[in-house]
Amino acid sequence: MRTEQADEVVVVGGGVIGLTTAVVLAERGRTVRVWAREPAEETTSAVAGALWWPYRIAPVAAARAWALRSLEVYEELAAGAAPAGVRLAEGVLGETERHEVDGWAAARLPGLRAATAGEYHGQGLWVRLPLVDMSVHLPWLRDRLAAAGGSVETRTVTDWAEVDAPVVVNCTGLGARTLVPDPAVRPVRGQLVVVENPGVRTWTVSADPASGETAYVFPHGDRLVLGGTAEEDVWSREPDPAVAAGIVRRCAALRPEIAGARVLEHRVGLRPARDTVRLEREALPGGRALVHNYGHGGAGVTVSWGCAEEAARLAAG
């Protein structure tokens, strides 16, 4: 029978929130094991468009603080030599005005300005933001965790009593709905289309004020990730051909060169939405502690480092 170590932490969940939290804990000297139901490459995080921007997340003030701390880390990663999958890329935030970033982020975004008519058909901001290639970033996080002495195990948890550690960190995302259980966690379905890149170098995010439909184009080398959708309380992970056609049509309206680009892949992810992120500590029987870090909606990548540091603080007691 295993004997618990006093400094041991088990992080349940192996997406970007779980792996980032595990890295922070391990680099602060904790003995960390990640228990993940599936490999990181099969999680919702792997489907993320992964532009740094606080999207569909609350509470707003806390989310902005977490996002700004994460921005610092992503800037360091983009400037570093390690292949973290992070780069600073220029593009347009459509239907966004300067006053929406003044007072919290404008000072951290050098070069922020109104988009020109040649850059965008409507009102938007031209800005340089971190863009993360999750196919690179998730394995990089796993390797960084291993370098810090942590490990990842394939395990499914149905009850906290199964976890043999004095501190457990719940980073299960949508899984928290049944594991906690927390019915406030619900899916927001997002569908993506990956196509060959016909030469697009800048990203674009756009929203139709009338219909509410969104479109985004994120270049990752020879690939373009096209989105997007936000279907509340929809559980299907099967790509819908009609939805895919709509995504390509909306993105081609933004960037005409996309029309006719060869489709490489269809992806679907279920964002773990909640009215507010749950980031708090509670007691478990036997003097153990449970730290919750879930409910990040469509902004998990954006806030991952800020939330990981707060979760590590809570884990310390």
Score class of each variant (00 low, 15 high):
67 A>F: 01
263 V>P: 01
208 D>K: 05
34 V>G: 04
300 G>N: 08
190 G>A: 01
229 T>F: 04
306 G>K: 03
141 L>Y: 03
113 R>C: 10
89 A>H: 12
258 I>V: 09
238 E>W: 13
187 P>H: 05
151 S>C: 10
176 A>H: 01
178 T>I: 08
219 P>G: 11
222 D>G: 05
252 A>F: 07
7 D>M: 01
304 S>W: 04
269 G>N: 14
200 V>K: 05
64 R>A: 01
1 M>N: 05
293 N>Q: 15
208 D>V: 13
126 W>D: 12
305 W>H: 13
81 A>V: 11
137 H>N: 10
248 V>A: 03
177 R>F: 06
196 E>Q: 14
172 T>H: 02
195 V>S: 05
11 V>C: 11
121 H>I: 02
201 R>M: 01
226 L>F: 15
148 A>F: 10
151 S>A: 08
148 A>N: 04
236 S>R: 11
105 A>Y: 10
3 T>G: 14
126 W>M: 08
232 E>Q: 14
317 G>M: 04
110 P>C: 15
276 T>P: 00
29 G>N: 11
247 I>M: 11
244 A>T: 04
269 G>W: 13
88 L>R: 04
297 G>L: 07
149 G>Y: 03
71 L>G: 01
179 L>Q: 04
254 L>S: 13
179 L>H: 13
23 V>L: 09
48 A>D: 14
277 V>I: 06
128 R>A: 14
129 L>M: 12
183 P>E: 02
42 E>A: 09
112 L>G: 14
209 P>L: 11
249 R>P: 00
187 P>A: 11
37 R>K: 10
144 R>Y: 00
48 A>G: 12
252 A>G: 06
134 M>P: 02
26 A>N: 09
25 L>I: 03
176 A>K: 02
205 V>K: 15
117 A>Y: 03
157 V>I: 14
280 E>Y: 04
182 D>A: 15
194 V>G: 07
1 M>H: 05
208 D>Q: 10
235 W>S: 09
186 R>M: 04
27 E>A: 05
117 A>S: 13
233 D>M: 14
220 H>N: 08
170 N>M: 12
168 V>G: 06
224 L>F: 15
297 G>I: 02
55 Y>C: 04
3 T>P: 02
195 V>M: 15
165 A>N: 07
166 P>I: 00
134 M>H: 08
40 A>R: 07
184 A>D: 07
94 G>Q: 03
308 A>P: 08
257 E>V: 14
25 L>R: 04
100 E>N: 00
236 S>T: 15
120 Y>Q: 09
